[in-house]
Amino acid sequence: MGMPNRKYADGEVVMGRWPGSVLYYEVQVTSYDDASHLYTVKYKDGTELALKESDIRLQS
């Protein structure tokens, strides 16, 4: 078993793309699913969504 190939840690605050949009919002990573390679993130309004790594970026 190798290390999970994840870029962002639980609790890390990053920018997540809103689905169907080009806009990124501040989100907190809450979990990562090794099987689906999706991150569960929480937006400031409390919305929780699963995002692909390509829809997440570090805060500038």
Rank of each mutant, 00 (worst) to 15 (best):
M1S: 15
M1W: 05
M1R: 00
M1T: 15
M1L: 13
M1G: 14
M1N: 15
G2K: 03
G2I: 11
M3L: 13
M3S: 15
P4K: 06
P4I: 10
P4M: 07
P4F: 08
P4H: 10
N5E: 13
N5Q: 12
N5L: 13
N5G: 14
R6G: 03
R6E: 02
R6M: 02
K7Y: 05
K7N: 06
K7E: 05
K7W: 04
Y8P: 03
Y8T: 00
Y8D: 01
Y8V: 02
Y8S: 00
A9G: 09
A9L: 10
D10N: 10
D10F: 04
G11Y: 05
G11S: 04
G11D: 04
G11C: 07
E12G: 02
E12I: 06
E12K: 04
E12D: 12
E12Q: 15
E12T: 10
V13M: 14
V13C: 09
V13Y: 13
V13N: 08
V13F: 14
V13P: 03
V13D: 04
V13E: 06
V13K: 09
V14S: 01
V14E: 00
V14Y: 03
V14K: 01
V14D: 01
V14G: 02
V14F: 02
M15S: 06
M15A: 06
M15L: 13
M15H: 08
G16Y: 07
G16F: 07
G16E: 01
G16D: 01
R17W: 03
R17P: 06
R17D: 01
R17F: 03
W18P: 11
W18N: 04
P19F: 05
P19K: 06
P19M: 04
P19H: 06
G20H: 07
G20D: 08
G20C: 08
G20F: 07
S21A: 06
S21G: 11
S21P: 02
V22E: 14
V22W: 13
L23V: 13
L23K: 12
Y24V: 03
Y24D: 03
Y24I: 03
Y24T: 02
Y24H: 04
Y25R: 09
Y25G: 04
E26R: 07
E26Y: 09
E26T: 10
V27H: 01
V27G: 11
V27I: 05
V27T: 03
V27K: 00
Q28F: 08
Q28V: 15
Q28D: 02
V29N: 00
T30D: 05
T30R: 07
T30L: 15
T30Y: 07
T30C: 11
S31L: 04
S31K: 09
S31A: 13
S31V: 03
Y32K: 00
Y32D: 00
Y32A: 00
Y32F: 09
Y32G: 00
Y32E: 00
D33H: 05
D33F: 02
D33R: 02
D34C: 08
D34R: 06
D34Y: 14
A35T: 14
A35G: 09
S36L: 11
S36D: 07
S36Q: 10
S36K: 11
S36R: 10
H37P: 01
H37T: 09
H37R: 13
L38P: 00
L38M: 13
Y39M: 01
Y39D: 00
T40Q: 08
T40G: 05
T40A: 06
T40Y: 12
T40R: 08
V41G: 02
V41N: 00
V41Q: 01
K42I: 13
K42V: 14
Y43E: 02
K44F: 11
K44D: 06
K44C: 11
K44T: 08
K44E: 09
K44R: 11
D45T: 04
D45L: 02
D45G: 05
D45C: 07
D45M: 03
D45E: 04
D45R: 02
D45I: 02
G46S: 06
G46I: 03
G46V: 04
G46N: 06
G46L: 05
T47V: 08
T47C: 08
T47E: 05
E48P: 05
E48V: 14
E48Y: 14
E48C: 10
L49D: 03
L49F: 15
L49W: 15
L49A: 10
L49Q: 07
L49P: 00
L49Y: 14
A50C: 14
A50E: 14
A50F: 15
L51R: 01
L51T: 02
L51M: 08
K52V: 08
K52T: 12
K52G: 10
K52M: 12
K52R: 13
K52A: 13
K52I: 09
K52E: 12
E53N: 04
E53P: 06
E53D: 09
S54A: 11
D55L: 03
D55K: 01
I56S: 00
R57W: 10
R57E: 12
R57P: 02
R57F: 12
R57H: 10
R57K: 14
R57Q: 11
L58R: 15
L58Y: 13
L58E: 15
L58Q: 14
L58A: 15
L58D: 13
Q59V: 15
Q59S: 13
S60I: 13
S60Q: 12
S60Y: 12
